[in-house]
Design a protein around this nucleic acid. Sequence first.
DNA 1: TTTTCCCGCCACCAG
DNA 2: CTGGTGGCGGGAAAA
Length: 798
Amino acid sequence: MEVEFLALKDLTSLEKSFSVETKEDGSQGEKENVCIERRKTTPLKTTESSASVFLMSRKSSTSELPHITPVKRTVLAEPWSPTTNLKVLISAASPDIRDREMKKVLFRPIENDKVKAAGSEPLVEDAEVEDSAQFEGAFDEEDAEKKPSRKEKSLGLLCQKFLALYPDYPPAHSPIWISLDEVATNLGVERRRIYDIVNVLESLTVVGRIAKNSYIWYGRQRLWTTLEELQRKGREQGYHLQMDLPAKARRTGQGQEEDGGEGDSGNAGGNRKDKSLRIMSQKFVMLFLVSKTQTVTLDAAAKVLIEESRDSSSHSKYKTKVRRLYDIANVLTSLELIRKVHVREERARKPAFKWLGPVKFSNSGNMENTLDVAQGEAAVNEDFRRAKMARHSSFSITPTTVSVQRQISSAPSSPRHHLTGFQNQCLDYTRKTMSNGPVCQLQRGGSTDRLSVSLYAQLSHSSTSSLPPTSTHPTVLAAQPHPEHLLIPSLHCLAYLPSLSQPSVVMLYKAPEQQEWAPAGQRSAKTESEEEGKRSWEENEQEEAVVTKKSKSGLEKSEKIGAQFQTEAPVSSLEMANTTASSCLSGQQGATESHTGNSIRDHTQPSHYLYVPNSAGLNNFNFLIPAGQPPASLSLPPSGVSTMALPYVLVPSAMLSHYPLVAGSVQQQASDNPTSLGFSLPAMMSPATFMVGTTPHSVGDASEISGRHLPSPATPEQGRPNVSTAGTPCSPSGTRQNVSINTSDSSTPHTPKETTASSSKAFFQTPGTLGSIASAVPAARKRGSAQRRLDIGHSAAP
DNA sequence: TTTTCCCGCCACCAG
DNA sequence: CTGGTGGCGGGAAAA
């Protein structure tokens, strides 16, 4: 696994190399800091959102800096495509998100520019990239305007990214550890935000708390069981009655649960604190589960919750509750358990949410572990499907991808855990994907078969974890384990999104076989989803929210494109993406032909691609590297720096972002984006070769960088394999080499630290693994400390 | 305007 | 204390 990570990193690094210089800015490194700081300090923050992540590593050098001004960097970072890409993918998965994504996408280039302007960087990247630059220019136009909008920072989006980092169904035997610090760092947000997400996830047992800053990722394995329990509890409590009641009537017996209730769900340690968000989340979910309509209005939920808490339900209380519910709803939406709708009640339409998850838990309770869940379940339960539908799970990251594996390099990092799980997951994902609403539409397209393209993404950042010591992460150990598996699964996997904001790399590949996958059940699911989609269209009112948005925002474009196959439905961005990818792989030409995915699908070309989001330097371009390919293309020199030559495809990020590119319908895009995209895929894809410098590992560097204790490779923790080596067999592509890419050295002078650090470490590590620490930690902590100071100041000062 | 909800202050708590 | 958590609500961006 690690390998993979490494690989990703490497990839990242590659990117970096391009842009290398960015790193040099010292400041840039820490996004975290940046993020944090910037907010306060600069307005710039706007953009920031998540993107920044990767950079973190750099920060290593200066632990202190963090606070300092990172702004520039941030900016830089953010804009990037990586994030964007994610978003895109995500969006594909879920419409809502999509919208946001779309919007966002547009601007990144701009941002980049801005950044440049900011001056911090050097831009070298640009220079290097030059070509790209040109392209960029083109793209820029499109981007031009966006900025940071609030949406980019939304909890929902953040949650998506978070979810994308881990597999829905991690292997039972190898738990995935999560370090909040790392996550925060990777996602480029403050910890505070992560708490919000984690608390909700914990309430549903998607994660379980182990210790401070440490959580275990359960994914959806326990979710169904938890939901079932919640349903039971909800009934016991009479929530269903309450729902019906007017407002206050209910009160019936609520008291009991309150805090205690949740227990099983997962909270490990009971804290009273848990109270609110966690409990509130469970109660909110209960309301859905006991609701006949499976639709709950915020208003009703808030009232019910208020009563329980017995608070005085002053208006302010109500307001506060509603705010919290929005937070929860955003997370649940990301989980695809609910979706926003509007219910018109008497006079007006009220915001409400509709449950998309399972309602009947026919199976005996424990599905969780079962088989590996996904498959079995999927097949079996409709409910599951439903749940799945939504998700963009596809995005989830699974780590494993081959590419990743390969890499490994040094980083100590972490978390490979994911990997293990993958296999299963992969399957699942696909299914999900299939099933998912968004995707579902494929059928229409006529292509029943989907291609399975998988995207693997990785985080580039190195988050180096700050916590090295933590130690506890057993997971680590586990994780590594069997690279092989990884590979296999990968075949099936539809898509993995890069989890992070910056996925450094994404692998796209098409499954060789075509599958028939969708078993009847799934199909049905699809159908449903489709139907839903239709309804929404038809129905306008309620659901529309989602749908509409899509259409409005980016969708139109995509849809148009997609139209060929589908109409209304939200296009499955994924497909689009897939298509694209596949097309690329296959030969570019296809794109045109295949407007639809079909053609593409047909192509069997399996190919794996490594998708390298353009990072800083190349704003607009993304590289698709045929992984599978022949190694020939790649060569790795054994020793440290080596350069690889890879055939690659440049894809304007913009395009990627808008899925549209895919189909060949460049035009459409064009329409959207005014100038930019001029190219059609085919064109875009021109293959080329590119050299990447590799550095074997930067691990050391990283450690150095951080200065911290970082264990660096050696880290005790886990035994993670560490590093290097890695060699995991990568899969299909076999080219692990690519992976290795990493590095730093590459061409630029840069600071190794940064590069390495960032690149290498980060990826997924889990919880404390990496040494990255510095970067990550600092930011968070610093921030925290800062606050503290403030706090202290208060208290003390007086 | 209203709906959403980001942001981060600040209280709490465990170590 | 110190640092991790997370309640809470102001206020501003979306709708």
